[in-house]
Write a protein that binds this DNA or RNA. Structure first.
Lengths: 243, 243
DNA sequence: GAAGCACCTGTAATTTCCTACAATATTCAA
DNA sequence: TTGAATATTGTAGGAAATTACAGGTGCTTC
């Protein structure tokens, strides 16, 4: 193992130890800025990936990112067409931005987005997908003019990212929003997801079909769903039920 | 940083470099056995976590595990009640087996399982959840009589596990089964998951309501689903559609 | 050329879902 | 104690889904 990669390794583990002492988002950003700089990264953003009805701004955990580009990105909802985001949803392995291929036919905005980033000095970058519970998706995307992405560096970056993400989540979201559904609503949706009709579920739970219909209707209201199928999909998407 | 943890770190990165050269499951098992031994682990099993209709045996990737315990475990479907498995589905952070609490009231078999493992010499262990694409869940569970689980060791184990898992998946499953649904079936299910009726979807796709009904029915047959809601749930679960 | 598959469409009967209008009982917090 | 939330059930009508029977086009593969 070379001296340089050993340096990386040591700093990666020191970074992980340091994380536990960081209590504010800014402290994490500063520490990440210092530690990722050794790999050539100048900018980074840590964010959840939005569902269709969400805005990416509400999911950004930490960022050290060109402000002009961020504003243009969010204003145009570039996350819907960003090739890096698309690949991030399809793989668990870290990848370089250049590996995020796109078809100009089906995604004409892909080129516009990659070119826009380059215009802000971000020609090359590295993206680390984070797949969590219930399909929760996030990533840390990083950029810099001269990156160290040797085979020795990548695992160190990967490890640092995983722990930084967990720390950021802990610091920023100490209390996840409670499940908005009642016990009965969850049960009714769960059996619906398993293919049961309202009458079936009523028999299973020992209540009438009408009661199950009421629970499903209530769940639809809470989830802003148009019907039972929609409600089940949203409940699965937001990990409100398990099947 | 202590000398011992630096040793761990170096060996962790050497293990990761070595992985790329391992082409057979047994080679990975041997390498893991050697590298994890430095942390005190004698046994390990790497497996996917089954859906309700699956058997865990079909998801085991690699194992160096007491045979008698494995047979008893699978014969009794212990994975349905194993506290370690349950916690594994609910967290992304590695944890020690002793942290996997269970309520003897609702899960009376929990104690039986933990005691059974202890009877086979596995009193303490460490479990690393792996959450992948589309809610895919897996874990590496490890055990040994005298574990090194210091704060310095855990990140090294974590990193080694992640790369070992990806390597095992690559070696064992080079060709994922193709999506059994046709393009139109996926589109119909996707719009259904977004709350659209067959008539709505027909209008969106420029075909008749009857056609959408046919696609949904075909998808139900392929997915062994009882109805549209069931089909959407299964398609989401198996990542056949994205919403 | 035949066979298979994807894709498209129709009618009709039956089942299931969705919603509007009501109502009662229990629990829990202000 | 007094609402608010939860859980339960009823009627009834219209909307949507499911299924059975039937048939057509276009493309690819053997």
């Amino acid at each position: 193992m070379s001296g340089r990669s050993l340096d990386h390794t040591v700093q990666a583990f020191e970074f992980i130890e340091e994380l536990d002492r960081l209590a504010s988002p800014q402290a994490i950003i500063d520490a990440m800025g210092r530690s990722f700089a050794q790999f050539g990264f100048e900018n980074f953003i840590m964010t959840g990936l939005p569902h269709p009805e969400q805005q990416i701004e509400s999911l950004v955990l930490l960022k050290k990112w060109p402000l002009g580009w961020y504003e243009r990105y969010t204003r145009n909802s570039y996350d819907r067409h960003d090739p890096v985001i698309h690949l991030c949803r399809r793989t668990v392995q870290p990848f370089e931005w250049s590996e995020a291929r796109f078809d100009p036919e089906t995604n004409p905005r892909g080129k516009e987005i990659m070119q826009g980033a380059a215009d802000f000095g971000m020609r090359q970058g590295y993206c680390l997908p984070i797949h969590g519970l219930n399909g929760f998706e996030a990533c840390l995307s990083m950029s810099g003019p001269d990156l160290d992405l040797t085979p020795q560096a990548k695992p160190a970056i990967h490890l640092m990212t995983m722990y930084a993400f967990e720390r950021a989540r802990l610091v920023l979201a100490p209390s996840p929003r409670p499940n908005p559904l009642t016990t009965r609503e969850r049960e009714a949706l769960r059996w619906a997801a398993l293919g049961k009709s309202a009458a079936d579920t009523g028999e299973i739970l020992g209540v009438t079909e009408r009661t199950i219909t009421a629970h499903i209707g209530s769940a639809c209201t809470k989830l802003s769903a148009a019907n039972k199928t929609h409600a089940v999909a949203r409940a699965l998407q937001h990990r409100l039920i398990e099947i």
